[in-house]
Simulated scan of single mutants.
Amino acid sequence: MLIQIAIVTQSYFWPIYFQSVKNTNAKQSGIDLLPLIVSNSLAMLCAGSITSRFGHYVPLMWFGPILLALGGGLFQLMSPNSSFGQWVGFQILSGAGYGACNQMPILAVQVVLTKPDIPTALVIIMFFQMLGGALAPSVGQNLFTDGLLRNLNKVPGVDGAAIVAAGATDFRTLVPAELMDAVVAAFNSALRDVFWFAFAAPALAWGISSLMEWRKLPDYSKQPEAEGNGVNDSGTPVKGIMKPER
């Protein structure tokens, strides 16, 4: 739930940063979100490969939230003048962190529980993942709106409520040119408040992951063959070989 809160918050508010602070349109802000999406997908593939190779999933549950928290925390360095390398790098950190750990709870329940309990556990995991995804925009939007109104109240000559209602791009039609920098700074500051939330959630997830029991995926390739009666290619009965099911 906590890592889902973090990634949904970042996925939701990075485009708002691009549109309100960097003055891009909706299409370009979606393109600018690609580093987060691509790094997430690649990290997920790497995490699956590493887990299959070594069998240990708990280290990725420690490592992933750290990267995800770093990506959220480093947003505090963002400003209207931030470089291309900064916002790409921060998104890559977050995407890699989420991709590394988001599937590990699903593996964990299949290792530590008996077969009758696994379906129930998987449903519980999916429930909390969806709960995190539902909570993130609501909490984040409240933090963003409150922070933005508070910041705009410090800028004389602007209607804070009207700017909030106008949205991340249309507010520029309501703001005089001489006040534009102050209003953009207000948006940037409000987004920093939201990204503290995106930092705290995975940091707490990392603390919880330290309580995970150290277990390893079973290596089915080394399991002894089941004994039974079968036949070889010539039809002669052979002991100790399980006849394959048709």
Rank of each mutant, 00 (worst) to 15 (best):
Q4I: 08
Q4C: 07
I5E: 02
Q10F: 06
Y17G: 03
Y17C: 06
Q19W: 05
S20F: 09
V21D: 08
Q28M: 07
I31T: 10
D32V: 03
L33K: 12
L34V: 03
L36Q: 07
I37W: 12
V38T: 09
N40H: 11
S41V: 06
A43G: 06
M44Y: 10
C46V: 09
A47H: 11
G48V: 00
S49I: 14
T51P: 02
T51S: 07
F54E: 08
G55T: 08
H56P: 00
L60F: 02
P65I: 02
A69P: 12
G71Y: 08
L77S: 02
S79V: 10
S79W: 12
F84L: 11
F84C: 05
F84M: 10
G85N: 07
Q86V: 05
V88C: 01
F90C: 03
F90S: 00
F90H: 02
I92T: 04
I92K: 02
I92A: 00
S94M: 09
G97D: 12
Y98G: 00
N102F: 14
Q103F: 13
M104V: 01
V109P: 04
Q110N: 01
K115P: 10
D117N: 06
D117C: 02
P119A: 00
L122P: 00
I124T: 11
G132W: 11
G132D: 09
G132V: 09
P137I: 02
V139Y: 09
Q141S: 13
F144Q: 14
G147A: 02
L149D: 07
R150P: 05
N151K: 12
N153M: 15
P156G: 08
G157A: 01
V158A: 10
V158S: 08
V164S: 04
A165L: 00
D170R: 15
R172V: 05
R172D: 11
P176G: 05
E178G: 08
D181N: 10
V183S: 01
A185F: 05
F187T: 03
F187E: 05
S189N: 07
L191M: 03
L191Y: 05
F195T: 07
F197E: 14
F197T: 14
F197L: 03
F197Y: 15
A198E: 14
A198W: 14
A200K: 05
A201F: 07
W206S: 06
I208M: 09
S209D: 14
L211M: 10
W214L: 02
P218Q: 00
D219A: 05
D219I: 03
D219K: 06
A226N: 04
E227Y: 15
N229D: 14
G235F: 05
T236M: 09
V238E: 13
V238D: 13
G240F: 06
M242D: 06
M242I: 11
P244A: 14
P244M: 12
R246L: 13
R246G: 09
